[in-house]
Write a protein that binds this DNA or RNA. Structure first.
Lengths: 176, 176
DNA sequence: CGGGTACTATGATGATCGTCATACTGACTG
DNA sequence: CAGTCAGTATGACGATCATCATAGTACCCG
């Protein structure tokens, strides 16, 4: 269910995804929604974000990139694969929740923020390990993350991967 | 109504915004929804995007920036103002629609794409006028747009303007 | 004044949503 | 074997949504 929710969030946003959709796509039993998610939809969103965050983190940690350029390329290639394999229909599930959630829903927003920060920090860490000074690494990591999130939206709008490629090429210039 | 819809889209996304919300916020009469928007909510979304697109374009055209740095700063300052004046609650209405709309809703997606492209092209044009070679100008403009859209999401998640400022500083490095 | 057009008031419709209560299943514990 | 409990089935609830039909009002043109 969490996995289905995450993919649905990434293609239609959180509010356009109903429990019925999640049930239908995951094959999970209807009756056990509030057994596994006692707090309802909010909890499903939080769990889906957490699941996505961990998945991305695990993928990043599997990287063997040694140079700063390889680090960024590995991160970018991950998002590029999302766009290509979904024919520009999917984006980032975390962003899909972030834009659909009123900013005063503290716990959901906190999960969103934690996900973004974990990715940014992991990326910065890898850049530091590849020889980039810490302060610059943090800034480059954050900019790359923002660039990707924005590029995902542009790709979705255009229906192709071209914007992401163009953004990626520019982001590479930020490296020493 | 269009103005209200646009601001609501930018703070909660398109699907979380009901006609009732738009009515309540705009003070418009309930009975005349389908007089002004015969195609229903889809048309409201398209019109809100068009209105936002034109508003941003008009603001950009009012710029007197002469150097490439000033051009980017003017564009960035606009988004920064959105974040600051809304206390990090608002983002980009076009993005709010883009993520909430299934990718096969062709006419809405076309409006979204047109909005993004018009901004990107206007920005590139100004960069060229400030002396940046055309090819680079287009790439920098697209990257800046993507960076801002992503930064808006990060600011919303964090509740502050810090991510946007960090991204802005890095984007400036792309200029010759 | 008369007629037509633009807009609004009111409220109904069917669908869908999130949420939950109640009852059932099966497997595991002692 | 009796008992417990995680998980599932079924279906109902109030609310809200987008949409529309019908009837009304305001205003402009001649």
């Amino acid at each position: 269910m969490v996995r289905s929710a995450a993919t649905l969030f990434s293609t239609r946003g959180a509010n356009a995804t109903s429990f019925s959709d999640v049930i239908a796509q995951s094959g999970a039993p209807r009756g056990s929604i509030y057994h596994h998610f006692p707090e309802g939809k909010k909890q499903l969103a939080i769990d889906a974000i957490g699941w996505t965050a961990q998945r991305v983190l695990a993928h990043l940690r599997a990287s063997t990139a040694a140079t700063p350029g390889d680090v960024l390329e590995y991160f970018i290639a991950m998002w590029r694969h999302v766009v290509v394999s979904s024919h520009a229909a999917a984006g980032c599930a975390v962003a899909g929740v972030a834009l659909d959630t009123p900013h005063d829903e503290a716990d959901v927003m906190h999960a969103v923020n934690a996900a973004f920060r974990s990715w940014s920090e992991q990326l910065a860490e890898q850049l530091v390990a590849a020889g980039v000074p810490a302060a610059r690494a943090r800034a480059i990591a954050l900019t790359t993350l923002a660039g990707m999130e924005g590029a995902l939206i542009l790709c979705r709008a255009e229906g192709g991967v071209a914007p992401l490629d163009a953004v990626a090429e520019e982001l590479m210039r930020l490296l020493p």
